[in-house]
């Protein structure tokens, strides 16, 4: 398979938005990495350390990154591996939903704001119900909007495994969200 040389043609290959410079990557993608760690269940107090670790690994691996590929799935893979290792420790297994009230913005509680906050809490509860492997695929596909082949590449899984995890994740996420809505309606 003949492809263009990696790392050289990126700027002219329609992926010029991917910064090659580490500073630029940090500046442009810090928020993405931060949010991703949150979506992977990392509590806010731990996110700084893990974001540091993600970018340190990115710094070291940057020379080997193929800039023809989209950057975010690659970044996500670092965040996923690091979050996965972090969550294996029993003391880190509690989720971040307990702190949601601390991280939402302090804007006046208009109806719209309240609704978004409730939606956010529901999404987080739904994500919490997923195994981390499924959660990674779900977040990348449904929230980040990545294509499944890229997801499979980034997470180093077969394509069909990616689709399988997505299907399972969707079902569980939907079931969790609907159950919570039902409970809220009954209370």
């Amino acid at each position: 398979m003949a492809r263009s040389p990696p790392l050289q043609v990126a700027a002219s290959a329609g992926v010029g938005a991917s910064p090659r410079d580490f500073d630029a990557i940090f500046a442009q993608e810090f928020s993405y990495v931060w949010r991703t760690l949150g979506r992977l269940g990392i509590r806010e107090p731990d996110r700084e350390d893990l974001a540091n670790e993600v970018f340190f690994q990115v710094y070291r691996r940057l020379p080997t990154f193929d800039f023809e590929r989209p950057l975010r799935p690659w970044l996500f893979a670092f965040a996923f591996r690091i979050a996965s290792g972090h969550r294996r420790l029993a003391r880190n297994r509690f989720e971040q939903s307990v702190e949601l009230s601390e991280v939402v913005d302090g804007a006046p509680c208009a109806d719209e704001s309240m609704e978004r906050r409730e939606s956010q809490e529901l999404v987080d509860r739904g994500l919490e119900s997923l195994e981390l492997d499924q959660r990674a695929v779900f977040v990348l596909f449904e929230i980040d909007g990545c294509a499944m082949p890229e997801i499979a590449t980034a997470l180093a899984i077969p394509l069909n495994t990616g689709y399988s995890r997505l299907r399972l994740a969707r079902a569980r996420f939907a079931a969790t969200v609907r159950r919570i809505k039902l409970q809220q309606g009954e209370s």
Binding site: F26, F30, E48, N52, V103, V104, I143
Partner: peptide
């Protein structure tokens, strides 16, 4: 499912990092 898709749309954007957190990570890194 449309209700789940709508939920995901409404929930965005996820809370961003505090400004000082970004600066701290930058300096530590």
């Amino acid at each position: 499912d449309s209700d789940i898709a709508a939920l995901l749309r409404n929930a965005e954007p996820y809370p961003d990092a505090p400004v000082d957190a970004r600066a701290r990570v930058h300096d530590a890194l």
